[in-house]
Design a protein around this nucleic acid. Structure first.
Lengths: 120, 120
DNA sequence: TGAATATATGAACAATCGCTCATATGTTCA
DNA sequence: TGAACATATGAGCGATTGTTCATATATTCA
């Protein structure tokens, strides 16, 4: 089990094997970190941020949002699908019109923490 | 000032002009929303998420992180630069070795809010 | 000084992303 | 039923992104 080369994949010697091991033990499941990255990826686009911010103020239909953001209906619809898949928005159909709203109140909390960071 | 075509850019008629106007008035600066998206874009990669999570547990040098995540030193270094530019990590030099740590405690708060959402 | 080593960086490439365009679906109403 | 309209969706594109590879920079130590 003893190996002369410390651990693979890094050209440099391991400097602090004790720290690496301790940190490794406390790392969450690979899957949790992946899911977290996927969630933030959804927030990482200004069009989607704008849509979410708008929906925080009011329930809106696709056309309303397109007009508000001065974008095509198609572009908005595509992004709403992404937001829906991430469980960030929900929708309700009334005739031809589909109304979108925020799925829960985590969005505002996450935005606020983000803004806190930006504003030093 | 009266215009027969409601507002451009959306093929459909405006459904709720009152709502659109009200939401528009309460939208933050275009720039704030852009900055927010840029911040979340940085969180939107699982390598960077892992690095941040690791640094939350301990200050680490580049080589430590590379070994921990089983990635090349170069890949880690590139990502640390991205994190540095976003003011999420800071570093300290001790001889040849550069130690990285979190720049402030917003990271953990943002992660926690994100996990809250993921776990329904 | 020169070899060894920790980190940074630029170019290049594959993969992913957001938008547009064309079109499909589904609903209302005459 | 068929025209009008709100929304959804698939293909295609240009732009961006994360990694690798080669190499540059900076520091230590003999």
């Amino acid at each position: 089990m003893k190996d002369s080369t410390p651990i693979e994949r890094c050209s440099c010697d391991v400097i602090h094997e004790d720290i690496v091991n301790r940190v490794r033990e406390n790392m969450p499941q690979e899957e949790s970190l992946y899911d977290l990255a996927e969630l933030f990826k959804v927030f990482g686009d200004s069009t989607r941020i704008k849509i979410l911010w708008a929906l925080e103020a009011a329930e809106m239909c696709v056309c309303d949002i397109a007009v508000l953001l001065n974008m095509t209906q198609s572009a908005i619809s595509h992004q709403l699908r992404v937001l829906k898949q991430a469980n960030l928005v929900k929708n309700r159909k009334e005739g031809k019109i589909v109304y979108y709203s925020l799925a829960d109140d985590h969005v505002k909390q996450i935005f606020d923490k983000g803004l806190e960071h930006i504003n030093e």
